[in-house]
Design a binder for these strands. Structure first.
Length: 640
RNA sequence: GCCACCGUAGCUCAGUCGGUAGAGCAACUGAUUCGUAAUCAGUAGGUCGGCGGUUCGAAUCCGCCUGGUGGCUCCA
């Protein structure tokens, strides 16, 4: 047997006999590493630690700290859970059990409905399997062998999977641990003891077999697992924290908005405080857009159905639209998008190349039919306001315009405390309109803009919309969760359908390039994200009530009233708590209502013509004069 | 829409085996005029999501509907 040359991540290399395993190499590097090792990456391919290596390779030992390691760990955890489930529930059939973002799930078919109360039993069995320390063994099978094997176990869903795999010509493999064998590509951990005991089953929900609603509904059990107990605890704490910040809960507690079934699902009532925040967001948005060369437009909520035939929405978007209504024998369609209206504004007169770029912006409220099961607080609704804009430009202007949008987007999002993003560039899908040249030009323009701005991005091949390539931006909130808000899409479809044009220098009509973009996406959803991001503690500039005056006794009401007047005269959103209550109670109520500034006035302040300032979450700041108070408030306004 | 679970006062929730409903907070009234996260007392508030069934009797058991929650699918 010859030697093979193994190159390590630090670029050093070592000769190993052919057939060496990742496990052996890891041990040689350090026993500590070997203990943490879950898999090995060989020339970019992930392998199990016991698989023999037979050729020169660059390798990397994968641990839980690597994303691939998490996948392996959770994938194996899914197998562990499946084995336990099979022991407990006879007649169970397994679907698929992959790793996901924060853990794993397994889809199962079982007549008995599993409830969360049964999780403990399953976890106990999982613990048992871990302590039994079964080695995890990989086998190569032919399709026939695999079908026969799983048919014997009545694993009919697995047979469906095997038939699909054998169509691709890929090697069929199974992984066994103890009495349990699962169809799986792998890789997996070496033995069940590696999985430890810091796992937890989290929820059970329905899921269609292979995600297709024509198929039967399986039960999906979600769980998670961490090598370290503290990591599990952190994860569970994160879930708790997210629950505490739930915008539906805070929305009710802070009296921001409500949803009433007497009005209809997915339709939002903005209460005064929520509406104030919305007003502040909208004002800022409009100001920024005007400063950046946009023109504000405003369009109706409904239009004759012919407009939607022209735009094509009655075709490709029908499933998401409210049913049309009949007005004087003519069908009208509630708008699911603003685009056709903006196209019509563009079309309302002739355009010269000198006019371009033209940027129309609108906070346009649209209505979309969403299936009842997907509605979720403010995040998924049936009526919402898009911060929409359409830019019409010359092909040469495309890159500059994208850059302009990226800059504006960054500015607006950072104003709301979002500074981390994941950026995706989606390219041409299989079904598309427009010419290949146009797609190439536009895709390159998007790419160039991203590169000029030095923005790191991931390409989503084939994930573009049928009408053009797009950039999607996902923001990260304080809990590290991603939310897709901003989207910048090139549209080859609507300019064509609406026959848009401009006259170029040569006197000939050309079609303008259209960019469709939204930065916050939907005001409702963005507001929901903001609530959770800030946990309801809106920064001073967004707080619906910025300051509350708290008179100590009725003797101080007049003085307190004069402070209130002075604050309001300065444009500060202030209220007064005139109730005959103890100061501690008033403070508590103001704290709970998350009012940033409390202004306490009693006899002592009144006499000295001062105000005691208390900042939410910080406490007493001492007595200030009016001038000092306004300076402090200005400072808060600048900071946020 | 589909699967599972849930719906009791404005909010959070209790209600045993089927015997006609309860707490805290909030609201209202009164007393208290108080110094940095809950003053005390009293009053009022419910067709137990809706409709139907079983039963002498239903918040409780069954069915249907409706709304919500967690997912599937889709997306802003």
């Amino acid at each position: 047997m010859g030697d093979i040359n193994i190159k390590y991540p630090d670029a050093s290399a070592k000769k190993w006999p052919t057939g060496v395993t990742g496990n052996e190499i890891a041990y040689a590097i350090s026993p500590k590493l070997a203990k943490k090792a879950l898999a090995v990456q060989v020339n970019g391919k992930l392998l199990g630690l016991t698989e023999p290596l037979s050729e020169d390779a660059e390798i990397k030992i994968i641990t839980f700290d690597d994303p691939e390691g998490k996948d392996v760990f959770w994938h194996s955890s899914a197998h562990l859970m499946a084995q336990a489930l099979k022991r407990i529930y006879p007649g169970i059939r397994l679907g698929i059990g992959p790793p996901v973002a924060d853990g794993f799930y397994y889809d199962i078919e079982l007549d008995h409905v599993i409830t969360p109360e049964e999780f403990g039993t399953v976890e106990d069995e999982m613990r048992k399997i871990v302590s039994q320390d079964f080695p995890v063994v990989r086998h190569n099978l032919t399709a026939d062998e695999a079908v026969r094997f799983f048919a014997e176990k009545d694993e009919l869903l697995k047979i469906e999977l095997i038939n699909d795999i054998s169509g691709t010509g890929e090697q069929i493999t199974t992984y066994s641990q103890g009495e349990f064998t699962d169809l799986c590509r792998g890789p997996h951990i070496i033995s069940t003891s590696v999985l430890g005991e810091n796992f937890k089953l989290l929820s059970v929900a329905g899921a269609y077999w292979r995600g297709d609603e024509k198929n039967k509904m399986l039960q999906r059990i979600y769980g998670t697992n961490y090598p370290d107990k503290n990591q599990l605890q952190e994860h569970l704490t994160r879930i708790e924290e997210a629950k505490k910040r739930d915008h539906r809960k805070l929305g009710r507690e802070l009296d921001l908005f409500s949803i009433s079934d007497e009005i209809g699902s997915g339709l939002i009532l903005w209460h005064p405080k929520g509406a104030m925040i919305r007003h502040l967001i909208e004002s800022y948005w409009k100001e920024q857009h005007i400063q950046n060369g946009y023109q504000l437009v405003s369009t109706p909520h409904t239009a004759k159905i012919d407009l939607w035939h022209t735009s094509g929405h009655t075709g490709f978007y029908q499933d998401n639209m409210f049913s049309p209504m009949n007005v004087d024998e003519v069908e009208y369609q509630l708008k699911p998008m603003n685009c056709p209206f903006h196209m019509m504004i563009y079309k309302s007169h002739l355009h010269s190349y000198r006019d371009l770029p033209i940027r129309y912006a609108e906070l346009g409220t649209v209505y979309r039919y969403e299936r009842s099961g997907v509605l979720h607080g403010l995040m998924r609704v049936r009526g919402f306001t898009q911060d929409d804009a359409h830019i019409y430009c010359h092909p040469d202007q495309l890159t500059d315009e994208i850059i302009n949008v990226l800059d504006l987007n960054k500015k607006i999002l950072s104003r709301f405390g979002f500074s981390e993003y994941d950026v995706y560039l989606s390219t041409r899908p299989e079904k598309y309109v427009g010419t290949d040249e146009n797609w190439d030009h536009a895709t390159k323009a998007l790419q160039k803009a991203l590169e000029l701005k030095a923005i790191r991005y991931t390409i989503d091949p084939g994930e573009g919309v049928f009408y053009g390539p797009k950039i999607d931006i996902k923001i990260k909130d304080v809990l590290g969760r991603s939310w897709q808000c901003s989207t910048i899409q090139v549209d080859f479809n609507l300019p064509e359908r609406f026959d848009l044009s401009y006259i170029d220098q040569d006197g000939i009509k050309y079609r303008p390039i259209t960019i469709h973009r939204a930065l916050m996406g939907s005001l409702e959803r963005f507001f929901g994200i903001l609530i959770e991001h800030y946990a309801g503690n809106f920064p001073y500039w967004l707080a619906p009530e910025q300051a509350r005056v708290l008179p100590l006794t009725d003797r101080n009401l007049d003085y307190a009233g004069s402070i209130l007047q002075a604050l309001r005269a300065k444009g500060i959103r202030a209220e007064i708590d005139k109730r005959n209550e103890k100061i501690g109670f008033k403070i508590r109520e103001a704290e709970v209502a998350k009012v940033p500034v409390m202004l306490i006035v009693g006899d002592s302040e009144q006499k000295a013509e001062k105000i005691s300032v208390r900042i939410k979450g910080q406490g007493d700041k001492g007595q200030l004069t009016r001038i000092e108070l306004f300076a402090l408030l200005d400072d808060l306004g600048v900071k946020f």
